[in-house]
Nucleic acid binder design. Sequence first.
DNA 1: GGGGTCATGTAATAGGTTACATGATTCT
DNA 2: AGAATCATGTAACCTATTACATGACCCC
Lengths: 213, 213
Amino acid sequence: MPGKRKVGNLLALAVLSLLSQQPMHPYELGRNLREHGDDRSIKFNHGSLYMVVGQLARAGFITEQETSRGGQRPERTVYALTDAGRDELRDWLRDLVAQPRHEYPAFVSALSLITALPPSEALSLLRARLDHLGRQQAGIRALIEKSQSDGVPGLFLIEEEYRLALLDTESAFTARLIERMNDPGTDWMGQWARFHGEQPPAQEKTRSPRRKQ
Amino acid sequence: MPGKRKVGNLLALAVLSLLSQQPMHPYELGRNLREHGDDRSIKFNHGSLYMVVGQLARAGFITEQETSRGGQRPERTVYALTDAGRDELRDWLRDLVAQPRHEYPAFVSALSLITALPPSEALSLLRARLDHLGRQQAGIRALIEKSQSDGVPGLFLIEEEYRLALLDTESAFTARLIERMNDPGTDWMGQWARFHGEQPPAQEKTRSPRRKQ
DNA sequence: GGGGTCATGTAATAGGTTACATGATTCT
DNA sequence: AGAATCATGTAACCTATTACATGACCCC
């Protein structure tokens, strides 16, 4: 429903945002993204950056401003935001904040197929995940505390706080899943064992109670 | 770190899983994915399906079994899982369950750049999001209840429950963010207003307290 | 002064999405 | 019978990731 953007990669949004502060050449964009840790929130790699900059230029959101300054370095081009680019930045961001969209986290996929594993193995894998999650949580907590003690205003930590909240939820869910599997009251292990290894029945899933036949 | 898979698209995992139950031709795979609502957990579109099937075949995880049955329909090819494919399915799934990996949800990106919007606008956009989230939550709750009353075992609803848990977290976080913005004690709106519209300072973000200079 | 790594970018390849094509079935 | 929809796939086009290239600076 939300009409396609000319340039869809979120990396482009970060580029627009940086250029809204001052003109830069691509490499500088990359440096800023890394230094400010934006690459934790937005997938970034060298190649994609140049691609995205090219797309933005073709779409008229940014323009070359000057070119080939500096001694004998390989010809760098400085880009600046256009008015259209400024509009796109605002509009895109508005959309992103206001409109949640359906996403596909890997763990959702994993859960939807997990019954293909034998139940006892699934249990131990879930325990391993819980372990790793704990480490990640600790990492983010440390990061937040360090930033705070470095005087970074709380405003600039919200995305890490959000990420942490997601991790907490995932941990809690995983732990609860393990419990439910072990709880004989739910008979999950029984169902699981019955489905596992049988051919057709793993079919009968979520919706669509098999039309009449 | 986790060595690249020959075929990386999660849709391929779903294909392996379906073929582990019985051989099928691609269109049938698609029908099953849709009918069982797997397309809520795994991104799916017609074109990608054929691509992925091709990749799996080249990688030796599946093979053509028979071809061109049926009257004058356009030549359909039935694929079956190979032993290598069965191994890959298990191994991939194990990895996916046990190892959480860094992801990039759109809302994290949005939060990391949200200060580019004027604070009052951000507030109303967040309220709008909260609204949409509420609707999505209601939708999933309804789906789960309907499935339960249709007799679908709880085991097959875990991925929807997990998704719901994520939504709940996002809602709570968003609501709390709105509160904190309105709380004069935090002075977020003050900081925000100061950063917003100023050129360089929106720089000073998360990590890296600007090396000495 | 030669071996790394920084700075800067281009090109080749692989991956994924959209559009196109066409016989069969069903609806009105 | 013509329109819509299903069934089935191929091809064209974008996007994104990896690999390649090369002068400058920095370290011991």
